[in-house]
């Protein structure tokens, strides 16, 4: 099986003077130390999740990070728009199952540049106020900056760890920027990764960007998958949309809360703002369940979901 051996996060304000490569190496070293990996060189694969990399170059920084960490295998960069961080987990799990590696260092990072800011501005996707995912008064998204690292390991000694259970990627085949009206791709991803018993799900960690169309689309997908009763985790109110880091950051934050039996409050949410009601709350809640799903969607019509289970 594949499980999460360690994780580490660096948030925007903590690292503004560090370069793209420095941020990635920093979080990776922290996580590698926590995981207690003895011999990086032979055993570890680097999987980097990013949309714009280091000043638009995605390959050179991957080589530099791999070298700094002593990973001699050729790195893999996953660049699947805003779903990259979930897709990178899926890619790592697949390659761990078949490749010669024991560990995958999966890092998500994007730097908030004028390039990105101007583009989202031009698309009129930005909220003038702190974003309010799934709320009736939501006005768009906030951009955020983070670097997050999840170490995934292949082995049987997973007691006390989060085990990777399933992953799925589907395209809407509808529009390169507009979410599907039927939530087609997200629905299919949810359907593919469901546990045998829906009642075992502690929560659904959704994309929840705060744009009118995304959040509506997700509510439709959740409803179609029969998951209306499952508590929703919505984290963009805290961190903004961290692009290539989002899938890893939000997976790790969800794990950390569930490790303490908590479902985080949906910051910014007040009133139902989607056609189908979600089980979402502005208050922190508790749970003793052990499965969660992380769902994301992105430009290019791509959707991705993973399910993790606490062993």
């Amino acid at each position: 099986m594949v499980f999460a051996a360690a994780h580490s996060i660096l948030l925007g304000e903590e690292h503004s003077d560090m370069s793209f490569v420095e941020r990635c190496v920093y979080v990776a070293r922290e996580a590698i130390e926590e995981a207690g990996i003895a011999d990086n060189e032979a055993q570890t694969l680097l999987v980097l999740s990013t949309t714009k990399g280091d000043n638009l170059d995605l390959w050179t920084p991957a080589l530099q990070i791999a070298q700094a960490l002593g990973c001699t295998h050729r790195p893999i960069v996953v660049s699947n728009a805003c779903t990259s961080g979930v897709c990178a987990q899926i890619t790592a799990a697949r390659l761990l199952a078949t490749g010669p590696y024991k560990y995958a260092v999966v890092i998500g990072c994007d730097i908030l540049t004028d390039f990105i800011r101007s583009g989202f501005e031009a698309l009129k996707a930005l909220s003038p106020e702190p974003c309010r995912p799934f709320d009736s008064d939501r006005q768009g998204l906030n951009l955020g900056e983070a670097t997050a690292c999840l170490i995934m390991a292949r082995g049987e000694e997973a007691a006390g760890h989060w085990v990777y259970e399933a992953g799925s990627i589907h395209n809407d085949a509808n529009h390169i920027t507009g979410p599907s009206r039927t939530g087609e791709g997200s629905y299919r991803c949810l359907r593919d990764v469901l546990p045998t018993e829906i009642a075992d799900l502690a929560c659904l960690s959704l994309h929840g960007t705060g744009t009118p169309y995304n959040d509506e689309m997700e509510s439709i997908a959740v409803h179609r998958a029969g998951l209306d009763s499952v508590p929703v985790v919505s984290l963009k109110g805290y961190y903004g949309h961290t692009l290539g880091a989002a899938g890893l950051l939000e997976t790790i934050v969800t794990m950390r809360h569930l490790d303490s039996g908590l479902i985080p409050a949906a910051k910014g949410y007040q009133h139902q703002g989607t056609t189908y009601a979600l089980n979402i709350s502005a208050e922190r809640r508790t749970t003793d369940k052990r499965h969660f799903i992380k769902l994301l969607s992105g430009f290019g019509g791509v959707n991705a979901a993973v399910r993790w289970r606490k062993q």
Partner: peptide
Amino acid sequence: FVYTLPNVVAGEIAIRNHYLGETACYIA
């Protein structure tokens, strides 16, 4: 701006051909 992502081509192929399966882009 919408083409400043390398996976968009995979989405364009999916749209043209009504492919609802996996689309992915790797820099490798």
